[in-house]
Write a protein that binds this DNA or RNA. Structure first.
Lengths: 338, 338
DNA sequence: TCCTGCTACGTTAGCGGTAACGTATTGAGG
DNA sequence: CCTCAATACGTTACCGCTAACGTAGCAGGA
């Protein structure tokens, strides 16, 4: 149906391989022939069939990215940065979303592999390595994004989440807060790391940890605001109120603030709140939200760089871990007198 | 490298075509053989090579979607709904983003076609039909999403944007507003339609149009809040202030509100503001934002339905246009005394 | 017994490219 | 004039799968 390489070749009276070489910028083609081919290709608006090319060559110059949810702007922004970085290096991106369902993610992995991607980037929502079987068997290079998995040492690009938790908590401490609560996600490695940073910051300041100030929820990723609301509700019932909260992400912070305000308390005067992720609208909220910025575009760029280096390097290097340092963005939700 | 259909066949002492038939649920295979094949496939964790399959069969049971920008949650949500709908009907989705660049969009179109998608869904940022040449030549079915293009009658799924503009403006009129401004996007069909709805509503209410109350900007899609801010700034300089503004999207509404508050005016008492799109955080903003909800998931579902029907139907039906009716979500930015 | 009509399965020929090697052609050097 | 190497281009054999047709084997009717 569509025009084929063969057609161009026949048209020009040369062999298919010659056209093929021209299209791939290979040597061993005369300058005159090369020009004739390119002109005809342009005239006919010919594009090589990527299925056939991939099948014949075993490569596709394409990498796949699977994210848990594109509605999370974090992942959408990451994909944007990644794509730009890949493009610059001559690779294409195929994007898939697992919709927060581990089983769907497994299907997407197998799907992209079956489509012949050269490498796979994976922000995984798996809870074990089980589902990655196909990926591991495929021997194709892959890079974990944002979240690591237990029992799997691999290349990784993500935020320095321990630093994120540390910086957020230090920021609260610097504002003279002492009873600092945490609304966290215990299921994801990002949640565990941020919690760890929280612990380290308290420890460094000589503030004892208090279980009554910590609420962990696994569902925080999906419906942050309602979960944050519920978690804050729980915190408000403890004997002694917190004077600050570090929330796993901005959405949960938004929910938490809602609950605080409903209780007739003031943010930040009664309770300061800081989130993580620095949503675009954070500055426009009812209480402008302090947050930790993850520099998402840089993450994408780094991921592109690492992936393409894996693809070009013949050797299989040691697992490399790239952690981007985040930064605090202070807004009204933490800046105020105690 | 990976395990092939041929291996399974050899392993079982049957021919490749038999295995192929089993995998595609085709008839003419004995029940016993079928079971043996399926078991072996599962044991070996075999997955057919989609490149080879697509090349041999000419179909891929895959549709492509190209959106202008995934960071727009509207498109991310649409993709989510679409994917669910396609999946349910036995199709897969391949996602691509044009990053608001028409040239990149053209490349993505050609890319997805070269990858053998059976159909293409396109939320286009083209300004003319020029860039769609490859798509049109490919003879493959396609559906425009959200935005229509001039000089191109085709299948379409999107919001009833005239109704959106109409309902938003009527809502403002119902709140006794009379000097109703509009911050719009003149470049996209959605912007033109919403503007048209705005005009119709005013006309129906007997309110004359005033050029000094209308600000159009093409850049509204990319950086809504700053453009909205600038547009509002302009409106505040007119001799007679507006008492309401209908903004093309929520982001521009956010920017507009910021400017209004900075001027020392009250929202909605001095100026009511309504946006469009109903962002997830709309209810949590400094001034909870009234908006038009587009029922994005339903859009995705409809798009899936239309596309698969095009794919299964052998005939080429008349261009079909599906317009989803939006609804008003009233919040504090419009509800208040004048 | 032979023919017919199923059912179950196989053979052959690609799909549109690419890899690896093979073969002309050319010009320089002896 | 011949050799030899470099250059330009072609031949052959797949890649992994499927479409379309072919054939064997069996049951049942005449």
């Amino acid at each position: 149906m569509a025009i084929r390489l063969k057609d161009i070749a026949a048209d020009l009276g040369v062999s298919t391989i010659t056209v093929s070489k021209v299209l791939r910028n290979q040597p061993d083609v005369g300058e005159a022939t090369r020009r004739r081919v390119l002109q005809r290709v342009k005239e006919l608006n010919y594009r090589p069939n990527l299925l056939a090319r991939g099948l014949a060559s075993g490569r596709s110059d394409t990498v796949g990215l699977i994210v848990p949810d594109l509605v999370h702007t974090f992942f959408a922004e990451f994909a944007k940065g990644l794509k730009a970085g890949l493009r610059q290096r001559g690779y294409q991106l195929v994007l898939a979303s697992a919709e927060e369902e581990p089983q769907l993610e497994v299907e997407e992995i197998e799907n992209l592999l079956a489509r012949g991607v050269d490498a796979l980037l994976l922000a995984s929502c798996q809870t074990s390595t089980e589902g990655l079987r196909s990926l591991l068997e495929s021997k194709r290079p892959y890079v974990l994004i944002d979240r690591v998995l237990p029992d799997l040492s691999s290349h990784f690009v993500g935020t320095d989440d321990v630093a994120a938790g540390l910086m957020a908590t230090e920021h609260l401490i610097a504002g003279n807060r002492r009873r600092i609560a945490h609304i966290g996600n215990s299921e994801l490695s990002t949640g565990a790391d941020r919690f760890r940073g929280y612990q380290l910051a308290l420890q460094a300041a000589g503030i004892p940890l208090s279980d009554s100030l910590i609420v962990q929820s696994a569902r925080l990723e999906e419906s942050g605001d309602t979960v944050g609301y519920a978690a804050m509700d729980k915190l408000l019932q403890s004997r002694q109120l917190p004077d600050a909260v570090f929330c796993y992400n901005d959405l949960s912070a938004v929910g938490a603030i809602k609950r605080i305000l409903e209780a007739g308390l003031h943010v930040p005067n009664d309770i300061a709140v800081i989130g993580c992720g620095n949503l675009r609208l954070a500055a426009y909220l009812e209480v402008p939200l302090s947050s930790i910025d993850q520099n998402t575009t840089e993450l994408g760029e780094q991921a592109a760089s690492l992936t393409t280096s894996l693809l070009s390097g013949s050797s299989r290097p040691e697992p490399r871990e790239v952690r981007i340092k985040p930064k605090v963005v202070a807004r009204a939700s933490t800046v105020g007198k105690l």
